[in-house]
């Protein structure tokens, strides 16, 4: 149906153009061919159209920007996110001024300086002062913007604070997996050769005892107000951890662990109230093309008050306990004792 519409639409369009063309040519022939003048007598029209384009264009821009803002992401829910957002809007403000002024010149000049037979263009091949000015001024403004960015970037990429909560995020085709360090807070070592249908994360129980208390929930839970260090890796191809509400993004690279740390500043509940949306959830998305299911790698992120988070944390059952058969099948020398040790509540 749509196809038919598109097809008839385009046929009609072509027919219309052909018709217009014939008419135009006929008119020209009827008028007789005068001496060829580039641009003919269309100068005023084109000049006016540029002015119209300028006015309508910016009109639409202002009108729609206001409307669109309703659908933008809510205010950043992380500390660094507030800073990067601010820098983004400052940059946008400054560049908007340039954008507007240059376009004013660009779209108004054509009308005012349109071709007229009796006019002569100004002979103005250069002007050193102007050239220097418009080299130096942008350079200074850019320097200020860069320094602002550098100052934030340095902090964002600095090593995570010591008491950060460590969370492992692993990307695979086509979902995310997450792991916490359990009681000891330490995330156990992994080895990609240990991965199988059960042990999807490749936890290396033989090499690292601290794997035994690690737990693997279905959602990411984070405490408000405490720094969180994401330890990111990928199992098969590139993925990218994207937490839009926290302004966090970092690629997940097979064979090369990456990381990103940040501090959530609003709980899910607070966000729900703020947005007046009881169904709101923080989300984790993938932003590096990874194949067929790239667009569907969603995981819910829950931010809660620290006490609530601790309660949740303590209630999680270690993976090793849920998969006792698997552990037994590993035939580790002391697997029974270890499992028992780490599984005690």
């Amino acid at each position: 149906m749509t196809g038919l519409l598109v097809l008839t639409g385009s046929i009609l369009l072509v027919a219309a153009f052909a018709l217009i063309y014939r008419i135009l040519t006929l008119i020209e022939i009827a008028k007789g061919r005068q001496d060829y003048q580039p641009g003919g007598n269309s100068h005023a029209i084109n000049g006016v159209l540029f002015i119209l384009f300028f006015i309508v264009g910016f009109g639409l821009f202002f009108w729609y920007s206001g409307k669109a803002a309703e659908n933008f992401l809510p205010e950043a829910a992380s500390e660094h996110g507030k800073l990067t957002d601010r820098l983004f809007w400052i940059t946008t403000g400054i560049t908007f001024v340039v954008f507007f002024l240059t376009h004013a010149l660009l779209f108004l000049s054509p009308y005012f300086f349109r071709y007229r037979k009796d006019r002569k263009a100004l002979w103005w091949p250069d002007n050193t002062k102007l050239e220097v000015a418009w080299t130096v001024v942008p350079a200074i403004v850019l320097t200020i913007l860069i320094l602002g960015g550098w100052w934030i970037w340095r902090d964002v990429t600095a090593p995570a604070p010591d008491n950060s909560l460590e969370v492992e995020i692993v990307g695979k085709q086509f979902n995310w997996m997450v792991r916490y360090g359990g009681k000891d807070g330490k995330i156990g070592k992994h080895n990609f050769r240990k991965i199988d249908a059960t042990n999807q994360l490749g936890m290396d129980f033989a090499a690292d005892k601290s794997n035994f208390d690690d737990f693997v929930p279905r959602e990411i839970h984070l405490p408000k107000g405490r720094s969180v260090l994401l330890k990111i890796r990928a199992r098969d191809v590139l993925h990218s951890v994207f937490l839009p509400h926290f302004r966090v993004k970092m690629d997940a690279v097979p064979g090369m662990p990456t990381s990103f740390w940040f501090t959530p500043t609003k709980t899910t509940e607070e966000m729900r109230r703020e947005l007046n949306d009881p169904n709101f959830n923080y989300e984790l998305a993938c932003t590096e093309i990874c194949g067929q299911g790239h667009f569907a790698m969603r995981m819910v992120v829950v931010v809660s008050e620290p006490e609530e988070f601790e309660k949740w944390y303590a209630s999680q059952e270690p993976w090793a306990k849920q998969n006792a058969d698997y552990i037994a099948s590993l035939n580790l020398e002391n697997s029974k004792e270890l499992a028992a040790l780490f599984n005690q509540k």
């Binding site: 240059t102 010149l105 000049s109 054509p110 102007l130 942008p138």
Partner: peptide, 19 residues
């Protein structure tokens, strides 16, 4: 940016033919 400014200055007080 310099290139853009130069284009604008070229248009300024020209006798612009709209081809």
């Amino acid at each position: 940016a310099v290139k853009v400014f130069n284009y604008l200055a070229t248009l300024w007080r020209g006798n612009i033919v709209f081809t």
